[in-house]
Nucleic acid binder design. Structure first.
Lengths: 367, 367
DNA sequence: CATTTGCCCGCAAACGTTTTCCGGATTGCG
DNA sequence: CGCAATCCGGAAAACGTTTGCGGGCAAATG
């Protein structure tokens, strides 16, 4: 009994195909296909027979053939800016778990902020005919959007995307978490709070800075120009920013960073100086990557849950892909942020002379 | 002029196929296929005409169809243990760059040390019919190997793998780098050196520990039992180990860790104590992840270049996949390691009283 | 009982390639 | 000049699915 096909000794193909199942279950391959895809029109009795046969011969559908004829690959593209930035692996992990649980595979790519890389990435994804792409790069070059947009291709962006039929946007509420952070610092008594931005060509970086400005205004604090420093969301950028801070006539008493990696860089940049965190200066990050709690000192930071982010991204993509998806019409998806207080923030230096370490706050965010 | 096929208004397919190129170049689709795949038997003149047509109609071959008929997907599987461990994204990045440059796509999966996850991962990869899999998880459960091994499936393992026709192994020379580290510490004057292992069920973790024992014996140092502590390659494990160290009657003067994450955990665990690194205790990591140089203090560590690792993995995979690969017969691939001295190591405490910080070593590894 | 309706199931046509096989043309040699 | 050998391109058969369409059979209706 040869395992497959009529001329089975043809090639090195030992795989069991839909035909083997059909023969075993004494039905046509069409019925097998329908049963396997759980199409309701097939008689329950027959379906059971098919599934039994599937088990017995160990059939697993050929993805390539399936994709070829149906035109859908069941692959989701996930584009991030830098896979070596610890935030993204966490995001990827969550995204992948969800996608796989829902029957999709994931194709990952990292742009490294390079346009050429991004273009080749898009090309590769189209070539593998992914069903949709989530662009989680927090600010994407507009050009490449146009490339994809052609055929009403389902896509998900963060913060902002073009107004197009099959585009969905994850709206992150930066304001909320950043307001909590600023109020936390203000409540501690800080008046001079600096901000290290991300690369400002990224929409999200500008949005975080603007949220900071707004929150500062709300608590009646002003921001001198030299207290807004442009970083690049890397540790190196954070270090450079810390040096700029050090060079100032007067060091601010607190600094808020556009992401955790910058904050870690700042921590590092301050390490070689005589200024200690949080005794002399408080530091707040953004993202709440896993590493944040392992910094010295553990980093107070604004949490943007990558579980929320991933879940919204996968859902939004499916909404764009599957015509009968319950939320097919929803175009915007809200992502909250919130402050997590750890040990890198304290009262401003000099405000409580000689009390020292023991007064270190542990309370949660002030109401 | 409809863009494709005879009955082009059939479905929503607007893609340009090999037929369009054939028509444009006035050749058969067979010739187009051959020309595109650079098969030498096609007349150069014709080939040029085909390529011109390819350009003009913007043809890009359909991967699914190609994979379906040829039986090869041009996808490489890459299995790592934990994508959130910063070592692996760096590895993934390098691996992907190389694979893409050589015309392959990459399918990534993270086992998280869970057998169930690993199994589902393997299943998914087989279902997508990857051409080969690199298991870079530094110690894999033997069971799953058997699942794959069936059809002489090309695979690459780290450190050790089953003796089978299409299996290749990346032999990492732990001894070299660890010897350098131990000699570096011994040269500084350390006599009491502890070692934080990884999870010992991982082959690679045991190998590193053994290399440590061997190197210690070589320099004539003994290791009390309580100086070998089992960790788990995470920061949390490193912290726990540091606490065990603290609980000892006498703190060792140096500690070597099985990976950088453990070392970071140790740094963190010591932070809350009165012991300062490297004044009171020297710390050495392993891997040299990017983060290592940004620790406080910058971490002295044994470098295992993930560029080397990735390059060997991709090459070894291709050697198994492509029958005419120059190194098709090579079964073992050597990966070197070497010490990188930064600032987390210094003379043992008390050995140079009152000289303080300024004596901090900056030299490279002792000969 | 005859006719219509509706429900399943099977036939067969795609999907876009690679690859085998074959035939025609060109070349080389006697 | 004739015949064999060589080469190169085209026709067509896979590859393993999904899916439109038609047909058979049972139930329902007149």
């Amino acid at each position: 009994m040869s395992p497959s096909g009529k001329k089975s000794s043809n090639r090195r193909r030992a795989t069991v195909s839909i035909r083997d199942v059909a023969r075993r279950a004494r039905v046509s391959i069409a019925t097998v296909s329908r049963a396997v895809n759980r199409i309701s029109s097939v008689d329950p009795e027959l379906a059971k027979r098919v599934w039994k046969a599937v088990e017995e011969v160990g059939y697993v559908p050929n993805t390539q053939a399936r994709a070829l004829v149906s035109g859908r690959s069941r692959i989701l593209g996930l584009i991030v800016s830098e896979i070596t930035n610890p935030f993204f692996p966490e995001l990827i992990q969550e995204f992948e778990n969800l996608a796989v649980a829902q029957g999709y595979e994931v194709m990952i790519g990292s742009t490294n902020y390079e346009l050429a890389r991004t273009e080749s990435l898009i090309r590769r994804m189209l070539q593998r005919s992914v069903d949709g792409v989530a662009v989680m790069t927090f600010g994407i070059e507009e050009e490449l959007v146009k490339k994809l947009v052609e055929r009403e291709f389902p896509m998900v962006f963060v913060d902002a995307g073009p107004e197009l039929p099959n585009i969905r946007v994850l709206k992150i509420d930066y304001g909320e978490g950043i307001r909590e952070a600023v109020q936390h610092l203000a409540a501690l008594g800080h008046r001079q709070i600096a901000f290290i931005t991300g690369p400002l060509r990224l929409r999200s970086a500008a949005a975080r800075r603007d949220a900071f400005r707004k929150s500062m205004a709300e608590v009646g604090l002003t921001i001198p120009a030299q207290h807004i420093i442009e970083g690049d969301h890397t540790m190196e950028g954070g270090m450079a920013a810390a040096e700029q801070l050090n060079a100032l006539e007067e060091l601010p008493t607190a600094v808020l960073c556009s992401n955790d990696m910058s904050a870690i860089g700042v921590l590092h940049g301050l390490y070689e100086t005589t200024h200690k965190v949080p005794r002399d200066i408080s530091v707040v990050g953004f993202d709440d990557i896993h590493l944040a709690q392992f910094m010295l000192p553990p980093l107070t930071t604004v949490q943007m849950s990558c579980k929320d982010l991933a879940s919204a991204a996968v859902q939004a993509l499916r909404a764009g892909i599957e015509a009968d998806h319950p939320k097919a019409a929803q175009k915007e998806w809200e992502i909250p942020t919130r402050l997590v207080v750890r040990k890198s923030t304290n009262f401003p230096r000099g405000s409580l002379p000689a009390l020292g370490k023991t007064t270190r706050r542990r309370s949660t965010v002030p109401a």
